[in-house]
Amino acid sequence: MTKGEQNLLLLESLIASNEKFYVWCYDPDGGFVATSCPEAERDVLDRAFRILGGADKLTAYARDNANTRPRIIGSSIGMQWALSYESDRNRKLIFAVGPVFYAEPLERHLRVGLRPYTQSRENAVWATELIRLLPQLPVMSYAIFTRYVMMVHNTLTGQQLGLDALASAGSDKDAPLSESAPQRDRGKVYLSERAMLQMVRNGDINYYSVLQGSIRLSPGVPIRGQDPLRQMKTSIVVFTTLVSRAAMEGGLSPEVAYALGDSYIQSAEDCRDSGELSALAHAMYHDFIYRVHHLRTNPDYSHAIQKCCDYIELSLERKIRTADLAALVGYTE
């Protein structure tokens, strides 16, 4: 047992029992090695990890030697894990932390979300067992889970990374709300939303702390959909709409802002994984802010030149003629 693994055992013993999560150990090909999960739940949760796509993401993470950060991965039912590695073993062991839910899962939503995975009788039995285990599965907020993830990762690797290390790994925003979700302070949510959109208007690339503060205050639009992903998709559609309008107020042309917003909304609708949705939301916010930032750091461009640049950027797959650009800004060729 390496020093990192010994420290991990100590760390687990210090975690409050009401916030307990499990640590799993796999080889780089996804083969099970060991876990702190009780034996009664082990097979069901290991199968959940595999059936819901976690094992495939783990093998991809194991091969990504350039990435030294932890990674949060999601699933179509809102179940989350985090991946890390043990540096002394040179990625010969990959650790998965979880599963957790960010909010109390609703049984009817999970039944809908699990339906595509229960075509065989064997998987149908597994889904029934998973739903039976729901009351025993950890539920903790995004903020708490990410702190534990960084503690585990730093313990295993000896690094001293902060929470911002999760940003580029596609960290997940909060999952669907439950019927018992606590009331939010609407005043604080509104002020946080204003601050977040002002970062877009200003093209302020130092937005991370504002974005994280907003995530902690509100998990999104409190509308329950027919499956666990619907609420996240609705939140991203609303978020993208607000951000695109703020970007236009910051100087981004409507031609670019509308087209970009539509593209991100369509991508959100096509997603089948909560991790992908969260990464998409972060990428969208980052993209709009940097576009406005680019405009503000190049103020010498005339309106006509900027309009031509926008047209070219939106038409990379088409043949662009001088006559088209001239007509766009009211000139003859």
Rank of each mutant, 00 (worst) to 15 (best):
77 I>F: 05
32 F>Y: 15
106 L>K: 15
70 P>M: 09
87 S>R: 12
147 R>N: 03
234 T>Q: 06
136 Q>K: 15
184 R>I: 13
273 D>Q: 06
70 P>C: 10
23 V>K: 10
160 Q>C: 14
98 G>S: 04
188 K>D: 07
184 R>L: 15
314 L>D: 01
209 S>H: 08
42 R>Q: 14
222 P>G: 05
53 G>D: 04
51 I>N: 03
323 A>M: 07
281 A>V: 06
167 A>L: 14
183 Q>D: 14
172 D>H: 14
225 G>T: 02
29 D>C: 12
262 D>V: 01
105 P>M: 03
274 S>H: 05
192 S>C: 11
93 L>N: 10
330 G>S: 05
79 M>I: 13
128 T>I: 11
105 P>T: 05
126 W>L: 10
95 F>I: 13
6 Q>C: 13
41 E>Y: 14
53 G>W: 04
212 Q>V: 05
184 R>D: 12
48 A>V: 07
225 G>I: 06
200 V>T: 02
148 Y>L: 11
68 T>S: 15
171 S>P: 00
288 F>N: 05
302 S>D: 04
266 Q>S: 13
300 D>C: 07
176 P>M: 14
107 E>C: 08
289 I>Q: 05
162 G>T: 02
310 D>N: 01
209 S>K: 08
14 L>I: 13
206 N>E: 12
149 V>Y: 07
217 L>W: 03
293 H>K: 04
287 D>W: 01
47 R>T: 07
204 D>T: 01
37 C>M: 09
222 P>L: 06
247 A>T: 03
323 A>K: 13
331 Y>Q: 15
57 K>S: 08
80 Q>Y: 11
120 S>E: 05
254 P>F: 08
247 A>I: 03
222 P>S: 06
302 S>G: 06
297 T>C: 13
210 V>R: 02
269 E>I: 12
112 V>G: 00
202 N>E: 09
